[in-house]
Design a protein around this nucleic acid. Structure first.
Lengths: 145, 145
DNA sequence: ATGCATGCAAAGCATTTGCAATCAA
DNA sequence: TTGATTGCAAATGCTTTGCATGCAT
């Protein structure tokens, strides 16, 4: 799937150094696999691994990690952005629990069937976003009880 | 399609008063039909119509208008949110120019074909987002020249 | 007359930045 | 050794809020 080692290698390839803070942030992201989490959550988890880590450092690294396609960034609702480790290289989308951030991967991409119907439009396509939102079963149980 | 009168009626129905500021904001949104625009752009346009309008008032009204489904809110990129008057009642999505905010409506919704393949997932669906991003021809021309 | 709406200024929140000190390579 | 990286604190940008005043109904 993906390993810390492969990420560290990718960082090296892009001329980034391996600081203990950076390693701790990556570990934190690993712990949150399958969930979109805020920078604050990552910061807290990182602090548990390497307490001498600053919030700015977290933000700066999240930016780097996004740039080299190690993590996804999106915003579920207004407010803080959320991040998730990319575990699957192939193009995909997400269904996201808007309560806890849990995600599942959706392999289906609507874009292919679309392309034809966009040709007549006044646009050159550069990107797209397709996200489903819902409540995961765990969160639904909490509601009921 | 949609008229200022119908919006004003909807406001009344929801027990909102018709202040000149509110009217000016609605007019501003009309002027921006077919474009996602920031609160600031709406504020500026509103000031041209009724200069005694405060930025807070704009935000407060955008919130109200979103709540009663008069406008759409989304965020194209990080930073400011963008808003657009809803001109078409039927469910649809958008292709959005990430340079100028221009939009075109896409009637196609991928959700229908999807529903079956989500049934096995651990989720109860509550919402979805499907947006295409690109450059409109006008913005592309500017690039070249 | 009543309470919703506004203006103003201050606060809130997530995120970014400048700069000096530090550390990985 | 040297430039990338960090910590710190301050600044930024967007948005929200409290409160007194004003205005639509």
């Amino acid at each position: 799937m993906i390993s810390k080692e492969s990420i560290e290698e990718k960082l090296k390839d892009n001329n980034y150094k391996l600081t203990p803070q950076r390693k701790a942030i990556i570990e934190a992201l690993f712990d949150c696999k399958g969930h979109f989490v805020t920078a604050e959550e990552i910061f807290i988890k990182t602090m548990g691994k390497y307490p001498q880590t600053n919030f700015s450092t977290v933000y700066r690294n999240l930016e780097i990690l996004e740039e080299i396609d190690i993590i996804h960034k999106t915003s579920i609702k207004d407010g803080a952005a959320v991040y998730e480790l990319i575990c699957d290289d192939s193009h995909h989308h997400h269904i996201i629990c808007s309560k806890c951030g849990k995600t599942e991967i959706i392999k289906f991409c609507p874009l292919e069937q679309m392309k034809i119907s966009i040709e007549d439009k006044d646009f050159t396509l550069t990107g797209h976003k397709f996200e489903l939102y819902g409540h995961c079963n765990k969160c639904k149980e909490k509601e009921t009880s």
